Simulated scan of single mutants.
Amino acid sequence: MTRHHSVRLMAVGAATLLLAATGSVTASAGSHVTVIASGLNSPRQLAFSPGGGLYVAEAGTAGNPADSPCQEHPEFGEVCFGFTGSVSKVDPAAGGFERVLEGLPSAGSPADAIGPGDIAFTGNHQFALTIGLGGSPEYRAGYGPDAALLGTVVTGDLRHLDGLDSLTEVFDATAYEAEANPDATDIDSNPVGLATWGNGWVVADAGANAVVSTRKGGSTVAVLDPVPTVGSFPFPGFPADAVPTDVVRGPDGAWYVSQLVGFPFEPGSSTIWRVVPGQAPTAWATGLTNVTSLAFAADGTLYAVEIASNGLFAGPFGSLVQVHPGSSTHHAVASGLFAPYGVAIRGEYAYVTTGSVAAGGGQVLRIAR
């Protein structure tokens, strides 16, 4: 089955042109939305450190065909590798951002880069980072040895940041996918969402359609089944890939997993799954569309980001949604956002990345919830 595992947005070119023309990523978001940082390169997930710093993973701008290793992708044409990914610190109060870690792996094209995807903290300064791939070990090898950190989880320390030299690979999600192949289809790994779990991490691998633990060399926590389409395109019951995108620990100790759902990106097909290790996933909320990120507030309310609230074929304009457990209808806190992706909650505000497929056009919004 052909995978549509990453943020391959189909209409990215047109949406990016629209962004340039309007200069706005909050077409109908309302006055309770404030832009606090602009100029990011395809920002994805974001997280607060225990000390209160807000950090964003930027997927980057991939590589330059003129001087970077490139290869032909069967679906997307020429894709190139470069060291354009980064991690930035955003000032929630004063606004603006500073890139604190640069030169990280990034592959694809400037409008469809895969690189740093999520950041999670294990202490005041220690962090882990997913670096995506969207392919097999052979696809990764096609970029050459410099691309070895694509498809992995790495760790670092905010006090000692010096590009790749400051990072340590702790888990090769792509190698695990090649060995275990949790969903028993083609070998395809794209580690995106990340959460801490004891002395290791839990990873949402969008390509593998699985949630994986990094502990003891890797193990499969859950596999998400294909999602049969309701409509007639491309045919009734077409098995769309689940595409898990984020994993967070709930107040009850269970894992909660979001899903994008692959081609044809059918509206309303995304479910938030409750996962208890050793048990089958159970549907916790339904009726969402193309979900990329989850975050629990202190009061136990769950928020989700829909990168395209009407489905990706309608264009990457999405929403921040307050999720109602056990329901298929949910409250849009802010809508009309251009390619939103990540969410973090702090006090009465949600912080959301937008322009997640825009080189230099990414933003962080502060949204009163």
Rank of each mutant, 00 (worst) to 15 (best):
R3I: 11
S6I: 14
S6C: 00
A14H: 06
A14S: 11
A15T: 06
A15G: 08
A27R: 14
S28T: 14
A29Q: 12
G30Y: 06
V33E: 09
S38E: 14
L40K: 15
L40E: 12
N41W: 13
A47L: 04
G51T: 15
G53I: 00
L54G: 07
L54N: 09
V56H: 09
G60A: 06
A62K: 11
G63W: 13
P65Q: 03
P65H: 01
S68D: 07
H73C: 11
E75C: 01
V79H: 14
F83H: 14
V90W: 11
A93E: 14
A94G: 14
G96K: 12
G96L: 03
S106N: 03
A107C: 08
P110F: 00
P110G: 08
D112S: 14
I114W: 01
I114T: 13
G115S: 09
P116A: 13
P116V: 13
D118M: 05
A120I: 02
H125G: 05
H125E: 12
Q126L: 14
A128K: 01
I131K: 00
I131F: 09
L133Y: 02
A148V: 10
L149R: 02
L150N: 10
V153G: 10
H160T: 12
H160D: 15
L167Y: 07
A173N: 09
T174M: 04
Y176L: 12
E179P: 00
A180L: 06
D188Y: 11
D188E: 09
P191V: 09
G193E: 00
L194C: 03
A195C: 05
W197E: 14
G198F: 07
N199P: 00
N199A: 15
G200Y: 11
W201Y: 15
V202D: 00
A204N: 06
V212C: 05
T214F: 12
G218I: 04
S219Y: 11
T220R: 04
T220W: 09
A222L: 06
P226D: 15
P226F: 07
V227E: 02
F233N: 01
P234Y: 04
P234K: 01
P236Q: 00
G237L: 08
P239H: 08
A242C: 03
V243H: 04
P244L: 03
V247A: 04
W255G: 02
W255L: 15
Y256P: 12
V261T: 12
E266Y: 05
P267H: 10
S269K: 13
T271P: 02
G278W: 12
Q279L: 09
P281E: 03
W284I: 10
A285H: 07
T292C: 02
A295G: 07
G300V: 01
L302Y: 08
Y303C: 11
S309E: 15
G311M: 08
F313G: 13
F317R: 06
G318E: 13
V321I: 08
Q322N: 09
Q322C: 13
P325C: 06
H330Q: 09
V333Y: 03
F338A: 10
A344D: 04
G347F: 07
Y349V: 00
Y349D: 05
V352E: 04
G355E: 13
A358H: 10
G360D: 14
G360T: 04
R366C: 07
R366P: 15
I367L: 12
A368W: 07
